[in-house]
Nucleic acid binder design. Sequence first.
DNA 1: CTCCTTAATGAAAATGGTTTCCATTATTAA
DNA 2: TTAATAATGGAAACCATTTTCATTAAGGAG
Lengths: 157, 157
Amino acid sequence: MPSGECRGQGWWHGKFRGCGYRLTLGREAILDILSKAEGHLSAEDIYIKVHPKYPNIGLTTIYRTLDVLSNLGMVYKLDFGDGRARYELAEGPKGAHHHHHLVCTGCNRVVDYTDFIDEEVELLQQTEKGLGKKYNFKINNHVIQFYGLCDKCSGNK
Amino acid sequence: MPSGECRGQGWWHGKFRGCGYRLTLGREAILDILSKAEGHLSAEDIYIKVHPKYPNIGLTTIYRTLDVLSNLGMVYKLDFGDGRARYELAEGPKGAHHHHHLVCTGCNRVVDYTDFIDEEVELLQQTEKGLGKKYNFKINNHVIQFYGLCDKCSGNK
DNA sequence: CTCCTTAATGAAAATGGTTTCCATTATTAA
DNA sequence: TTAATAATGGAAACCATTTTCATTAAGGAG
Ligand SMILES: [Mn+2]
Ligand SMILES: [Mn+2]
Ligand SMILES: [Zn+2]
Ligand SMILES: [Zn+2]
């Protein structure tokens, strides 16, 4: 992880500032796709979306950039059990929009939800605090996913 | 998924009953390992533990058996981000011992915790109920994992 | 603006966990 | 015991991700 500064015009440029990462066309393209297409994109999904406009950006760069973004905390790397990692922006230009996931094990549909977050947030903070103290962990992230069958898939059975 | 009955002496035989699965040496060996070695074993871990006693059980069978057990709900398939699936028994002979995980992103250490489960359980039930109704999901499982740095790893930084 | 250092990149090859194939074996019901 | 077929193992295939390495280009210095 290098150190230094950089400049640019996108909202994410500030995030790079102070981390010494160079601002390249590829990285901008990938961040652009991620900030527009909301959802849960795989590396290949991103590649396919980026390719028409920037045909010279390879899959390898997608993976490398996602790794950087993930380490910077700008992107969440998710696993929904379909054999490939999926990525989503941790927060948009307007700020955080933290949410959890509801995954259908039948058709792999994923629902973002922010409902019930009030009680959840409270409990999570308590839990993080308690666990951190008890196990001497510096907790900085969590994953909460519910698995089940969506209406269509439970109807099929 | 076949149908029928089966017999045996292990506590898990009952689980197989009514599902039509045949009770084989390999499956017993794998369940045996899982019930003894608590932890989070990869398919290869299990293979290595099973091999000395049953050298003729292949990795393929390990994977297939874990898949069956996972579908039966007898085993949880977990992802801690280290590139391989890990498995743990959903419950032992004495009953359930549901827990959540605390994962160190520095050294990959995983802590099982059951503390704070009381409030968690209550909230989870509420949440599952609410989400299920709102999104028409039949929720039957959840994953909760906290990520952070353990004492050793946060000291290193 | 030009030069220089070195981070970033792309294409191809390698990796490695998991799955598939298929001929053979073993479990179970009859 | 026998027949039907589920289960198995070894090898090959799969395929998402990583590594290699020669080439390009971002960005600071001057
Ligand atoms: Mn999401
Ligand atoms: Mn565990
Ligand atoms: Zn579904
Ligand atoms: Zn650690």
